[in-house]
Design a protein around this nucleic acid. Structure first.
Lengths: 339, 339
DNA sequence: TTGTAAGCGTTATCAC
DNA sequence: GTGATAACGCTTACAA
């Protein structure tokens, strides 16, 4: 493999000049630049990135921590990150944490060892204090995460408000016994969504009763189990808002199994707008997050940090959207109740 | 940040010894090892990986080329790769090709510039000749790919045989007008699956007519469109084998829309066993590939290449499985026709 | 067993 | 505008 000194020799210049041609082409006279480029071409020279990274102590690589790469929600965000990164000459290193806290801890080593220039964490499990501490030392950005005290840049939607919308939609369809299957309560997102559910209920003079609330884990199985449970009570909900589409689909299948028809007997609203939400039968009414855009925005923020630019705004709340399909029964109604 | 020389100074040894403690602990006496480890601890020393990589001209990083990270088929394979890689001290760099040939080409640069030690390509689009040429220079492994002349290690299932099984299953349920929605024909996998369909038909004395075959693109939309088309003919199929679950689901929804009931009026078999296959209504009969295992095996093979071990076997065909659920109507039948 | 010292290929700091 | 040269931090012959 030819090295820079080979190019220099062939072009009759010094390595310094070759380096300049590569990195600051304007600081060198056109004629010598010509010669150098010619030599580079002739030798088919490729700069040794390892040497460059070493010398410059930067890698042009960022790390993305993903709770579960097979979850379409995360993989779409990664897609957005990847695109923005590629456009800016950065590569994306991926790490599956499998929802394990220890894997998040372990990933910090990559930053410490300067193996990556920065990190984007999707739905981090680490406590806020630790995150802030990391953030003091390394460039990090959070996505689908929300902080009580936003000192670290993060990208998210307004989970409280979106949950209010989802719940309100069900209430305006005339439902009063609206149940909620939440995500795990250790996650702030889940707590926010739960809060939104409660707000909407109270705002409409309804009492969010404990017997209509279940703590799930965002998974199909947890939605399925909790729905079976909810429907086995004496008083049964007529509508349910699940904090993820996976859970919503689980809930619908559980209802079906008990002969409860969706949306006729049970109205369902989910969250995430996964690819299958529109393919499922009945198609899912759900909250759509701008996943690709969230990935992009996260990378934009990280780029700013990497370039030493000041980030005036750390809280980046993108607009979500309630997508009305069949599972809520809205299409059978003539009109909604007033707000 | 403390460097190796700091550790050496504190421990009262040379950097060479520190290096040895880190990489060949057995070649140094326990007592000095003790001292060095003590110093490392005290300084909270982390080796500078950039320097190490540079010096050793290796990165402990591999590149995975993914046609589409949001596709659960690929993300599950990536999961398997990731796991095996992590266990062996390798990191996984991810690159989305978006099914673009030029992105596959561009990724070779990473290898040339020694930014990664090796590469796993999922469903590569590059022609066999080019792949072989790359393989002569760099360690690569293919997954969900099949070569005519297997000179590069690859991991796959037997797509011809699995398609035969899928088609045969429908035939044994009594269907004679069995249609096929294939993947894009530029892909060998699609051609193999088509071949399997044809084999099964012919083996049972049926004629695989052109009017019952459509070339899709593995996507939901293409399955949907082609099904509408198939059902608009005078003679209509009673069963369909789609080369992907996404297409199968599209086909089912198209049928539903036309009032054709699945499985009563139309039996459907898909391919991939995506997560959603079991959640869909009707649940999908489909071919399951051992995705996680395929990822793992690919990484195992790449590790062998990276370690300079000989790979005696390049063709790694893992077992697939026909998973019988509701969409094919088998559960309504008393028994299948004989083979 | 341990230390010395010469690189690895690039970039940055000086002079010129 | 260009060149000489000293790093960057680690690894590894080779010597002791």
């Amino acid at each position: 493999m030819p090295k820079m000194s080979d190019v220099a020799k062939l072009a009759g210049v010094s390595t310094a000049t070759v380096s300049r041609v590569l990195r600051n082409p304007d600081t060198v006279t056109p004629s010598t630049k010509e010669k150098v480029l010619e030599a580079i071409n002739q030798l088919n020279y490729q700069p040794n990135m390892l040497a460059r990274h070493f010398r410059r102590t930067e890698t042009n690589t960022i790390l993305v921590l993903v709770p579960n790469i097979s979850n379409t929600v995360f993989s779409e965000i990664v897609g957005g990150i990847e695109e923005e990164a590629a456009q800016n000459g950065y590569r994306v290193l991926l790490r599956n944490t499998n929802n394990q806290l220890e894997n998040e801890y372990a990933s910090i080593e990559h930053l410490k060892q300067r193996q990556v220039d920065g990190m984007i964490m999707l739905s981090p499990k680490l406590d806020e204090e630790t995150l802030i501490e990391i953030s003091h030392q390394y460039p990090i950005v959070l996505a689908t995460a929300h902080l009580e005290t936003p000192t670290i840049p993060f990208v998210s939607i307004d989970n409280v408000r979106s949950s209010e919308k989802a719940t309100e939609h069900l209430i305006r369809l005339g439902h009063r016994r609206v149940a909620h299957i939440s995500g795990p309560m250790y996650s702030l997102i889940s707590r926010n969504r739960y809060e939104g559910y409660q707000n909407a209920m109270k705002n409409h003079g309804l009492n969010p009763e404990d017997k209509f609330v279940r703590e799930g884990e965002f998974t199909y199985e947890s939605g399925y189990e909790h729905m079976l449970d909810l429907l086995s009570q004496k008083e049964v909900p007529t509508a349910i808002y699940a904090a993820s589409d996976d859970m919503a689909i689980g809930a619908i299948n559980a209802a079906n199994e008990l002969g409860v028809k969706v949306p006729e007997d049970l109205a369902v609203v989910g969250f995430d707008n996964i690819k299958f939400a529109s393919m499922f039968n009945p198609s899912l009414t759900t909250i759509a997050q701008p996943l690709h855009g969230m990935g992009q925005r996260s990378m934009e923020l990280l780029l700013k940090k990497l370039n030493g630019e000041a980030i005036s705004q750390t809280e980046h709340v993108l607009p979500d959207k309630l997508i009305i399909r069949d599972s809520c029964g809205a299409k059978h109604k003539e009109k909604l109740l007033p707000m």
